[in-house]
Design a protein around this nucleic acid. Structure first.
Lengths: 219, 219
DNA sequence: AGGCGTTTTCCTGTATACTATATATAAGTT
DNA sequence: AACTTATATATAGTATACAGGAAAACGCCT
């Protein structure tokens, strides 16, 4: 009797974890509005758990910059300022560019195929103006590269930055353009050829261009 | 009556905060050894607080990668692997280089003077072979640049990476060399001239060189 | 002695209870 | 009425109590 039970991950999802992801989701998608005061008692009963896991989650969210705690006073959701994009994208671009550089030695045909496939999905999403999917797929595309770089520190830093970008994009309904498709192709090409300079440069361009596109929404 | 009492920071040092910094310190300086199992009850009484703030601190430390939590099982201090330097320094160098670039528009004479002063302190520490001070001053030197860049996201990311580097250096008693003094001078010069490329390049060199020096300790 | 199952202990995760401080509300004074 | 001062209420921070599960200790069998 084989019993294929895969207990490699005996994921008993701890109350703290589920509280954390739910709260983060609510903050990113705007259910919890920027500036809103958070009362742990309320959140606790809304989530059906006690205050303890809620408070633990809030502290993690603070370390990621999603909430601000005023000790002894209150906890509130941080603001979503459009100008934050100016602070957010440069380090994101730098780390993504670095990831691409570091990914080169670990490239395999599988990875390249995966990237090309993702970019096709991406192109399709752009074509059908499925903006939400496009954002999601774009993130996955870049995640492949980050994973390939295989650097846990970078992965960590980026996941935090990405979450903030996601929130900004959510609150401002940004739209990715066709230009990204071509840039992705260039990135794949540069990766194939192991051109460190080129890949780093295009990657930065790809991300920093978002600043301009973001600004144009002001109009 | 002016009463200059600055109650902008009525810092009531919360038990959680003091527990956190103490635990982090213990992990960095090796009081808590890599791989060691952490028992909240013990830690709690050692710190004179209850388990709650201890557990909260441990969770923050996990998010920073200083401990690993196996839910329901145990919490242990992460290992200090020399090879981690290979993963740690590239993003650190990239972000420090970016900081320097971004600092340029915010440079003032005060900042430049401060940098030159710090570098003199640094040179003095190197000269007297006060290795510990040299490390500390070097960190302060770079912190000035990061602060000048005035980007909260970068500051955040770097503080986490710096803590890891500090731990690595502690556990391997790394020593900074005279070469850093000259590189710091070059950095200051490039900043003065607003030479983005140069400052970025030297900054990266300055940090990545540490990888080589670190490896040479193997011998 | 070594392996397997059972029992016991311990520890983590979570809920609840307690405490002190901050804010809101009401009373009092000029 | 405006401004203090006092009182009440609420909420954050911390401690403790409780429950389930993991690891350790023990005993049993071969």
């Amino acid at each position: 009797m084989p019993i294929p039970t895969d207990h490699s991950k005996p994921i008993r999802k701890t109350a703290k974890e589920s509280a954390f992801s739910q709260l983060q989701q609510w903050i990113i998608d705007g259910t919890l509005l920027p500036g809103e005061k958070l009362n742990d008692k309320e959140l606790a009963e809304a989530l059906g758990v006690s205050r303890t896991p809620v408070r633990e989650s809030l502290q993690l969210l603070e370390s990621q910059g999603f909430v601000k705690m005023y000790p002894g006073r209150s906890t509130e959701v941080t603001e979503v300022e459009k100008e934050a994009i100016n602070d957010l994208l440069p380090p994101l671009a730098a780390l993504q560019a670095l990831s691409a550089e570091l990914a080169i030695p670990h490239l395999t045909d599988d990875v390249l195929a995966l990237l090309e496939h993702k970019n096709q999905q991406f192109a399709e999403a752009i074509r059908t103006e499925d903006d939400f999917s496009a954002l999601k797929i774009d993130e996955e595309f870049h995640q492949i590269i980050v994973d390939t770089a295989n650097n846990p520190y970078i992965s960590n830093l980026l996941s935090s930055l990405q979450a903030h970008v996601r929130r900004l994009f959510f609150h401002n309904s940004i739209v990715l353009t066709e230009q990204s498709i071509e840039e992705h192709r260039t990135i794949i090409g540069a990766l194939k050829q192991g051109d460190v300079e080129a890949v780093s440069s295009v990657m930065k361009t790809n991300w920093l261009r978002a600043i301009e596109e973001f600004r144009s929404l002001d109009a």
